[in-house]
Simulated scan of single mutants.
Amino acid sequence: MVTAEIALALPSLVLVTAIALWGVAVASAQLTCTDAARTGARAAARGESLTAVRELVVKAVPPRAMVTIHRDAATVEVDVTAPVAPPAATGLPPLTVHAHVAAATEPATGDG
């Protein structure tokens, strides 16, 4: 009788564990994207070239992430969007995390 109960409960426990681990992966990806966007915004605000800033951010973000950088005379905006795939065989759709950071440009920097 105990074997039958375990046979019924074990798949549910595995599914709950997989979803909990996915939640941790989503939180980790969100933090990674936010940190990378913040680092990129700081670098761009200091006046580094947008190509160098993009390379810096792309190195730090998860695979398949999209990075958008916009700089004008007053502000720098860095957006990072990354998909997080669900555990296999759960049938859940992938989640997308997004980070947006804006920073004021330093006075000596120009457009570029």
Rank of each mutant, 00 (worst) to 15 (best):
V16L: 15
A60K: 12
L56H: 12
V14D: 15
V61S: 05
P87G: 13
L50Y: 15
C33D: 00
A52R: 08
R42P: 07
D72N: 04
A99S: 09
G47W: 15
I6S: 13
G23H: 04
P94K: 01
V97E: 00
A36E: 07
A44N: 10
T75R: 11
A20R: 04
P107A: 02
V14P: 14
A99M: 02
E5D: 04
T105Q: 08
A18P: 03
P94S: 06
G40E: 08
A36N: 06
A73F: 04
V61R: 03
V76E: 13
K59Y: 11
A82Q: 09
R64A: 10
A102P: 13
H98T: 06
A25F: 01
A37H: 01
L15T: 05
T32W: 00
T17P: 12
H100P: 07
D35C: 15
E77C: 15
G110D: 13
A45M: 14
A103C: 14
G91I: 14
Q30G: 02
L10M: 10
H98M: 05
V14M: 08
V26A: 02
D35A: 05
P83G: 13
V53N: 06
P94Q: 04
S28G: 04
A45G: 07
A88S: 14
A104C: 15
A7P: 04
V101D: 08
P94V: 02
I6R: 03
V24R: 01
L92D: 06
V101R: 13
L50F: 09
T96D: 06
D79Q: 06
A103K: 15
Q30P: 00
A89C: 11
E55Y: 09
P63D: 01
C33E: 00
A36R: 10
A44P: 14
A108W: 15
T68S: 04
V78F: 03
P62T: 03
T109Q: 08
A43V: 15
A73V: 11
A43Q: 14
L21T: 15
D35T: 03
G91E: 14
L21S: 13
I69E: 02
D79L: 14
A104D: 15
V53Y: 09
A108G: 14
D72V: 02
V16I: 12
P11E: 08
E5A: 03
C33N: 00
A27Y: 03
